[in-house]
Design a binder for these strands. Structure first.
Lengths: 250, 250
DNA sequence: CCAAACTGAACGAGCGGTCGCTCATTTTTC
DNA sequence: GAAAAATGAGCGACCGCTCGTTCAGTTTGG
């Protein structure tokens, strides 16, 4: 999936394991804390302070902001979109906008996180864990490619603009994609356990990565691929390719 | 290869064939004209007017500009780099900078074009047209992945920033990548002709596209792939994958 | 041979404008 | 009527780009 700032990745990621352990050392245990890594609590979401007290209102207004900003960012890009435009498109004034965010980058984070959330939930709701791991995988791939196809402009947005996030904030966005990759890891492991998928455990992560790449590919080479394939054909062909690598006889 | 603005592609490319025919209708025949398409002359390079008269000096100064801007754009991104910074890093004043370009976007175009040029020339000089097409292909793949690896930050730069180019200028950049794809088309066709590659002519373009995608993949998923593969291993594995699709027994 | 005239590359203060963000004030809510 | 929420004029920084000026080097004219 296209969920990252490439440049930032290349600068940062060699140490990403340790970076996670260290960078979250300031976190404290709250109800939003969800996991452990290297002994530190890892927050799943970045907390954006707001001057407004009512949590329900904050959520509502931020949804307005996200909806407005997604369109603007897709059409104009992050840098060329002004905060005034975001405020106007959200239906309130510039002053009000800054009651719910602290910086323009916060809006970008909200947008990235919302898109990630949509991809993940759409993917999860399309997956059953009945049947063999292999069957699950085939279904998941079909859903995944369909979601990528339907959301390609938003996926593209994250891909192109997330590099503008502050380094620290970027990590939250990156983690979010790892979570999606893990869905495929789960399915693969299930297939290994029930014998329907014949790869070594140590190749699971790579396989999951490969799947994500094929999804990305449909998004950002769509202009080229659509000259030759429908989504259906692409799905079939890439599924076949992946299953061949998995060394099972269909 | 990563040479495009994704969003722009999705907006523009469906009509790219006709767009070329139409958009260049104003072109006239000059010594820089190099090709024909739909009866109109297609310029290969965008002409950037300069206030300076000496062509040699223009070339020299623009090389300085490119060298300075590549570094800045890679480290800060196009939008966050100021024209003053470009001028300072180039070794002259802001006023002088504008003697050699007309807009900040011109600098981005110069940079993209120079990077493309480097990729293409490096690739071409590593290719021989001796032996079978199949042998050529294997060598070309090895060189291509190596070039992608060595130039990944610059390739990434084009990928992330070319969307900021004016639509018209973007087309020049897009054309440049098509030319690189055509190198692989040539090789594939040679292999078909001499019988060493067994695919249908109508799949040549798609195959060439696939090769480009695999090169891209190494660039912008390097952070993930490097956890599992060296460049060597990646090259071997992807070459094998491609050859399998080509349906030849090695 | 030299001085006067000309050339054009380099310069950088400054212009017009935009942008992200603030805060004194008003409006709404309960 | 007090607290919460919304407002938008305004601030100050900065940005892309311009243009009047400088000056080393070249050409011209006597």
């Amino acid at each position: 999936m296209a969920f990252r700032a490439l440049q930032a990745y290349n600068n940062v990621d060699i140490n990403i394991e340790s970076a996670f352990g260290l960078s979250f050392s300031k976190c404290c245990l709250t109800k939003r804390s969800v996991g452990w890594k290297g002994g530190y609590v890892v927050e799943k979401k970045k907390n954006i302070p707001s001057l407004v007290k009512d949590p329900k209102l904050i959520e509502k207004r931020r949804e307005q902001i996200i909806e407005a900003a997604v369109d603007l960012f897709i059409n104009k890009g992050f840098h060329k979109t002004t905060t005034r435009e975001i405020a106007r498109a959200s239906g309130f004034s510039i002053g009000t906008l800054y009651e719910y965010i602290e910086s323009k980058e916060d809006v970008l984070y909200l947008v990235c996180d919302a898109i990630h959330g949509e991809v993940e939930s759409r993917l999860r709701e399309a997956i059953t864990f009945n049947g063999t791991g292999l069957k699950n995988l085939k279904l998941a791939l079909r859903s995944f490619f369909r979601v990528m196809d339907q959301m390609s402009d938003r996926v593209l947005l994250i891909y192109q603009e997330s590099k503008s996030l502050p380094k620290e904030t970027l990590r939250y966005v990156l983690r979010r994609e790892e979570e999606i990759t893990q869905i495929f890891e789960e399915i693969l492991r299930k297939g290994i356990a029930d014998g329907s998928i014949g790869i070594d455990e140590k190749h699971v992560k790579l396989m999951a990565d490969n799947i994500m790449v094929l999804g990305e590919m449909w998004v950002f080479r769509r202009w080229a691929l659509k000259r030759h394939y429908t989504l259906e054909e692409y799905t079939d062909k890439q599924t076949a390719l992946l299953l061949r690598e998995i060394s099972v006889s269909e």
